[in-house]
Measured scan of single mutants.
Amino acid sequence: MFKRLMMVALLVIAPLSAATAADQTNPYKLMDEAAQKTFDRLKNEQPQIRANPDYLRTIVDQELLPYVQVKYAGALVLGQYYKSATPAQREAYFAAFREYLKQAYGQALAMYHGQTYQIAPEQPLGDKTIVPIRVTIIDPNGRPPVRLDFQWRKNSQTGNWQAYDMIAEGVSMITTKQNEWGTLLRTKGIDGLTAQLKSISQQKITLEEKK
């Protein structure tokens, strides 16, 4: 169930391209415009997507990853294993993690069937560096609404905000991946996880038929 919630949630996290980005210092504006741009692209490019579902990787690479804190999220997933990894191991892992996100997020976007969304009203940021933004996803086919909290983090150097995690039903996506990959990290280390991520990233994206 959580895996499905995570995939549905990713439908609204794909941010804007650099040329049309919203105010990078306001995570609420980023979330709002990102959702609108993403849904528009999914709707307008269905012919290309249906002809070649792996085209979704391109959308992810162009529109999402430049505005997601990939390395920060990847380091959180590694936890204690990050500090013990060599620079070469980290570089290989982050490259594999990025390719994994292209496949995983692309597969999530393949679930698009006309969903709509509501974003919580903007709250004062103050001096906060981590801000959760509640998004409610509404399914046109009558499924119950899904309420999610996207975690946005302020870059201490640039002042810009980027998304790095999502919490559904009190469970963090980062925590879920830590639990899912924990045994592999304990037995085969970061190299074993890197190899698995490379394998997963090679899987073809498949479209979910409308139910």
Rank of each mutant, 00 (worst) to 15 (best):
18 A>V: 02
8 V>T: 02
91 E>C: 05
79 G>Y: 05
147 R>C: 05
16 L>D: 03
28 Y>Q: 10
7 M>N: 00
101 L>H: 10
122 E>P: 11
85 A>D: 01
202 Q>G: 10
170 G>M: 09
136 T>D: 01
114 G>Q: 04
165 D>L: 08
181 W>M: 02
12 V>D: 12
109 L>C: 06
62 Q>P: 06
26 N>F: 01
122 E>T: 02
144 P>S: 08
139 D>T: 06
65 L>G: 07
154 K>S: 09
28 Y>H: 10
181 W>L: 07
162 Q>H: 12
81 Y>R: 03
36 Q>L: 11
203 Q>W: 05
153 R>V: 05
65 L>E: 06
172 S>H: 10
93 Y>P: 06
186 R>H: 11
134 R>H: 14
80 Q>T: 07
16 L>M: 03
199 S>F: 15
30 L>I: 02
151 Q>R: 08
88 A>P: 02
189 G>E: 05
176 T>S: 09
22 A>D: 06
136 T>L: 08
207 L>C: 12
137 I>E: 00
63 E>G: 11
191 D>I: 02
102 K>V: 07
63 E>T: 04
178 Q>S: 15
125 L>P: 06
168 A>Q: 06
159 G>E: 13
53 P>M: 14
180 E>S: 10
112 Y>G: 07
117 Y>N: 10
187 T>P: 06
24 Q>S: 01
169 E>R: 07
69 Q>R: 04
175 T>M: 15
80 Q>A: 11
152 W>D: 01
176 T>C: 06
51 A>P: 07
170 G>F: 04
69 Q>Y: 06
48 Q>M: 07
6 M>L: 09
100 Y>A: 11
138 I>E: 04
8 V>G: 05
135 V>A: 13
82 Y>C: 05
95 A>S: 01
109 L>H: 04
9 A>G: 09
175 T>K: 13
16 L>V: 04
96 A>I: 01
141 N>I: 08
96 A>N: 13
84 S>V: 04
186 R>M: 13
189 G>L: 06
43 K>Q: 15
135 V>F: 04
59 I>M: 04
206 T>Q: 15
1 M>D: 08
62 Q>L: 04
204 K>G: 11
123 Q>L: 11
124 P>I: 13
25 T>M: 02
82 Y>P: 03
31 M>L: 02
151 Q>G: 09
117 Y>I: 12
115 Q>F: 09
116 T>W: 08
106 G>W: 01
135 V>N: 12
60 V>H: 00
34 A>K: 05
184 L>D: 15
105 Y>T: 12
136 T>Y: 12
99 E>I: 10
206 T>G: 07
51 A>W: 03
115 Q>V: 07
209 E>L: 14
106 G>P: 08
30 L>D: 14
83 K>Y: 06
142 G>N: 11
173 M>C: 13
163 A>D: 14
208 E>I: 03
166 M>A: 15
200 I>H: 14
131 V>D: 05
121 P>T: 10
169 E>C: 02
117 Y>G: 03
177 K>D: 05
141 N>F: 11
202 Q>E: 09
190 I>R: 12
129 T>Y: 06
27 P>N: 10
151 Q>F: 01
156 S>V: 09
116 T>M: 11
203 Q>G: 10
143 R>K: 11
179 N>Q: 05
207 L>M: 06
153 R>D: 01
203 Q>R: 09
68 V>H: 02
187 T>H: 09
58 T>C: 03
172 S>R: 12
15 P>D: 02
109 L>F: 15
90 R>M: 15
18 A>N: 09
194 T>K: 11
207 L>Q: 13
153 R>H: 13
42 L>S: 07
46 Q>C: 11
26 N>P: 09
41 R>S: 10
3 K>I: 00
174 I>E: 09
195 A>W: 03
153 R>Q: 08
113 H>P: 07
58 T>R: 09
196 Q>L: 15
30 L>A: 12
204 K>T: 11
17 S>K: 02
90 R>G: 12
143 R>F: 00
196 Q>I: 15
8 V>A: 01
149 D>R: 05
52 N>Q: 02
170 G>H: 15
36 Q>T: 11
182 G>V: 09
81 Y>T: 06
53 P>D: 00
14 A>S: 08
164 Y>N: 06
154 K>Q: 01
63 E>K: 15
69 Q>A: 10
207 L>K: 06
191 D>K: 05
10 L>A: 03
79 G>I: 15
40 D>V: 03
83 K>P: 02
107 Q>D: 00
68 V>P: 09
81 Y>M: 01
8 V>I: 00
117 Y>D: 09
115 Q>K: 09
146 V>T: 07
95 A>N: 08
134 R>Y: 01
67 Y>W: 03
98 R>S: 11
21 A>L: 05
71 K>G: 11
11 L>Y: 10
29 K>R: 03
38 T>L: 08
7 M>Q: 03
189 G>C: 07
170 G>Y: 01
78 L>G: 01
116 T>Q: 06
20 T>G: 13
135 V>M: 08
165 D>V: 07
141 N>Y: 00
5 L>Q: 09
138 I>F: 10
74 G>V: 04
51 A>R: 08
181 W>G: 10
188 K>N: 13
172 S>V: 08
27 P>S: 07
84 S>E: 07
185 L>H: 07
128 K>I: 10
97 F>I: 03
57 R>G: 02
187 T>D: 05
52 N>Y: 07
140 P>I: 07
153 R>W: 05
129 T>L: 07
183 T>L: 10
164 Y>T: 11
107 Q>C: 06
77 V>A: 05
47 P>Q: 02
18 A>S: 02
60 V>G: 05
41 R>W: 03
33 E>P: 06
24 Q>I: 00
9 A>Y: 04
98 R>I: 14
184 L>S: 08
6 M>E: 09
179 N>W: 03
41 R>V: 13
70 V>H: 01
162 Q>M: 08
17 S>P: 12
121 P>Q: 13
104 A>T: 15
105 Y>A: 15
142 G>I: 01
195 A>M: 13
32 D>K: 10
10 L>P: 09
190 I>A: 02
112 Y>L: 13
81 Y>A: 07
124 P>E: 03
42 L>W: 00
35 A>C: 01
201 S>H: 09
10 L>I: 07
82 Y>A: 01
205 I>L: 09
92 A>K: 03
87 P>D: 01
190 I>E: 04
98 R>E: 06
102 K>D: 01
168 A>N: 11
210 K>V: 08
149 D>I: 00
49 I>T: 04
19 A>M: 07
175 T>N: 06
163 A>L: 11
203 Q>P: 04
210 K>Q: 01
35 A>Y: 13
80 Q>P: 07
177 K>E: 09
209 E>I: 04
116 T>H: 05
201 S>L: 03
73 A>M: 07
207 L>V: 13
5 L>E: 01
196 Q>E: 00
208 E>C: 13
87 P>N: 14
97 F>A: 02
62 Q>C: 08
170 G>P: 09
176 T>W: 07
116 T>R: 09
23 D>F: 02
206 T>V: 09
57 R>P: 10
125 L>N: 11
